[in-house]
Amino acid sequence: MNIFRLAGDMTHLMSVLVLLLKIHTIKSCAGKSYPCSLCFILLESSSGISLKTQELYALVFATRYLDIFTDFISVYNTIMKLIFLGSSFSIVWYIRRHKIVRRSYDKDQDTFRHFFLVLPCLLLALIINEKFTFKEVLWTFSLYLEAVAILPQLILLQRTRNIDNLTGQYVFLLGAYRALYILNWIYRYFTEPHYVHWITWISGLVQTLLYADFFYYYFSSLKNNVKLKLPA
């Protein structure tokens, strides 16, 4: 464990917390007799969270962490895996089933089809993998799928003209997590013998590059002190 990996995991954890905080805010708004300014904004505009992306992440974690009961690496790893599995499935549950949270989800804008991402990733995992076993192919599939799972969210952000502050922070934290993982790989490459993982690196690099455009607009909105808006 190095500082980049730890910082990456922590930003990933923070991104999940930001989403849960957002859901909590939407929930707590129900039945209030006084207007809560944040909830009002969240309910008036759609939440801007892509259910498609959240479902893809749930699938990513479910296929990647199949080893949770068979291979023990560390208490830290096991706890983090449980957190990511639990949070991703509960976020999907909230958006689909929770009475109030569901209402803030804009279904008509979030039109990306899972199928277009899942199928190519599955085929690619069957062809390009380190070992042709059930667990290994699914693990590779989870890496490919994670690389592109943010696409429905980025498309939704571009469509939603008014980007909610928390949604912007969420995407920024996810992008930061990926960038820190690349630093972690560079560090490990120079400090650990035989540390070469082409599949992980290339899919991780592709994933980080998808955030480049968002980062550009995120930082320029910070610099100019204006609300984040992506060009149409």
Partner: peptide, 10 residues
């Protein structure tokens, strides 16, 4: 020490 896979990451 060789590590065939990066399964120690999250």
């Amino acid at each position: 020490k060789s590590q065939p896979l990066a399964h120690d990451e999250l």
